[in-house]
Design a protein around this nucleic acid. Structure first.
Length: 119
DNA sequence: GCGGTGACGAAGC
DNA sequence: AGCTTCGCCACCG
């Protein structure tokens, strides 16, 4: 009964990592892609997040921004304000479509964090 | 089955 | 320093 995971594995990993993002933290597509094993496949991460809205438990895609810290995918949410509003609600300051102190808020995916949240 | 596209990223110009 | 091209691979027509 092998199911030939194919790309499903990639998607699943993306969701796992994104869900593991701590409150008030953000990460980048490339970081997730790299963590998965395809550092150049950052686009696939974005595509995975594109369908993440129908995945459950819900994936906090608003915590995922590009490597610049810009909210590039905000227009893919229910509203253009959703992503920014959610981030602000979590204590992440957003200005000019970008995350303030992105380096401080930046969270890098790690296997340790997937098992238990102990930073 | 192929070409165009994409919530990215890095390199090239 | 800003724009363009390539790569990556899955999805859509």
């Amino acid at each position: 009964m092998k199911k030939t995971k194919k790309s499903k594995d990639f998607y699943d990993k993306v969701y796992q990592v994104v869900r593991s993002i701590p409150y008030g933290r953000v990460t980048s597509y490339g970081a997730i892609a790299k963590f998965i094993g395809s550092p150049q496949s950052a686009r696939m991460v974005g595509w995975a997040l594109n369908v993440s809205h129908k995945v459950q438990p819900p994936v906090p895609a608003h915590r995922v921004v590009n490597r610049n810290g810009l909210l590039t995918g905000r227009s893919h949410f229910a509203g253009n304000y959703i992503m920014e509003d959610l981030l602000k609600s979590e204590g992440v300051e957003v200005e000019n479509n970008g995350i303030v102190d992105f380096e401080k808020k930046y969270w890098e995916p790690s296997n340790n964090s997937l098992r238990s949240n102990d930073n």
